[in-house]
Design a protein around this nucleic acid. Structure first.
Lengths: 239, 239
DNA sequence: CACTGAAATATTTTCGAATATAGGGTCTAC
DNA sequence: GTAGACCCTATATTCGAAAATATTTCAGTG
């Protein structure tokens, strides 16, 4: 029943329209840094890159506007949102606020199922290598997914769809900075210990300690990005 | 230098493109309740309503998707976002969190200019009638603007562009509920006293008292909406 | 030589037609 | 009488060309 008689074009699951497909790809390309911050997103250029017409491209761009991944000016077109130290600082600060709230609520509503979901997410993450290669750093998509799941697990019990959605949006924005930094300076910190600390504090029920560990983790992320040699600022910031 | 030689079509200031114009109008119509929650936003219907082509309509709809004012499903088109008691509760809770943070930061960074902006905003608001008519309630756009300015004044000093933008987004979403409720039950509470309290507490420097007054104000807004007789829920909620 | 103004070019934005899909109704087969 | 498949219509989506706008180039003037 879930799978209908899909026809010709539908090679993707979930988003049959071209606009949605372009949206997903473009979003990925921006977050991964495949298209540089501040880069002009001309219609013809994108039309060629994804081999589609103008309409779906425009549709995708307008959706990304919402997420602050692209910026726009009437009659002048779209750009990839710029990056900057100021913006990164603001972003991390916002994450601290939002995730602190979500974490406190989640812990207040703690249930065995919630705790188990964290343990499970940690276990899976810890068994997956940070880098696809053992000698030098290489992007490992599997780890990236598990990492996101792990962090979301803490917040997922907060009971507020809006707050959770907002946290995820901010996490995506951070991801862009992180990917950009990683593409420059390889040796990522070993985050294993930090993640274990986060889990232990959250499961211990000590709210203040858990919040403090969370803040420290976020701040460290910011510092690593800033010290990665990533050239900042570049282009207009969207907000 | 700021004002260029604008040409023919530019009767509006700020947003010369048709898409932006439609975006503004449609946004207004949804917030005012001129188009009901859950209502189908068919392409032809909108094309006729605003007397434009398909492209600008679609562009506007995709932008509104970001603000959760419309919802969308692939191949099934757009709807005005639904409303519901659950969603209203979540919305107000989120506003409490976000505005509490912004208020605390604003007060921590307090300056004479900031305090003066609040006094000024209060004065202007207090001199403007809530209703356009003195006998029965009628929407007064002037008051609405001043009301928004007043509430924003408290938060504007928080120093975080993201947080401020987020608070404004939530305020817009609340406004839709408030307008819908107002269109049913006329006699709005006299908010004057509450606003004075908010101002006094904020200017006194007593952070905890100011936060408490703020929360109370938001909660009261929610209760009034719920008891207005507004039929809930209706249509799918966007989040 | 700098500066104004206007043609030329590149790009964005918009339109209307063409295509693909969803939802409903009907007709047959069992 | 009901279930299933098929067609038909209404609608969403997409395309490529046309119109509007920004940007660059270049000639002419003070």
């Amino acid at each position: 029943m879930a799978v209908k008689k899909t026809s010709k074009r539908d090679s993707r699951a979930g988003g049959p329209t071209i606009a949605t497909s372009v949206y997903d790809q473009l979003r990925d390309d921006i977050i991964k840094g495949a298209i540089e911050p501040g880069h002009r997103l001309g219609t013809d250029q994108l039309r060629g890159r994804y081999d589609v017409g103008i309409s779906p491209v425009r549709e995708a761009l307008n959706r990304l506007l919402a997420e602050k991944l692209v910026c726009f000016e009437d009659q002048k077109g779209f750009h990839v949102a710029g990056i900057g130290e100021e913006d990164l600082y603001d972003l991390i600060r916002m994450r601290c606020w939002a995730e602190e709230t979500a974490l406190r609520e989640s812990m207040a509503n703690a249930t065995p199922e919630w705790e188990e979901s964290i343990v499970l997410a940690y276990h899976r993450l810890s068994r997956t290598p940070r880098s696809a290669q053992s000698e030098k750093f290489e992007f490992n998509p599997e780890w990236e997914v598990l990492h996101l799941v792990f962090h979301t697990a803490f917040l997922a019990n907060c009971g507020s769809p809006r707050l959770l959605a907002h946290c995820e949006l901010l996490a995506d924005q951070s991801k862009r900075y992180r990917q950009l930094a990683a593409s420059i300076s390889f040796p990522a910190r070993s985050e294993g210990d930090e993640h274990k600390t986060l889990m232990d504090k959250a499961l211990s029920g000590d709210v203040e300690a858990a919040v403090e560990a969370h803040h420290a983790h976020l701040r460290k992320t910011m510092e690593i990005i800033i010290h990665s040699g990533l050239s900042l600022p570049a282009g207009k910031i969207a907000v």
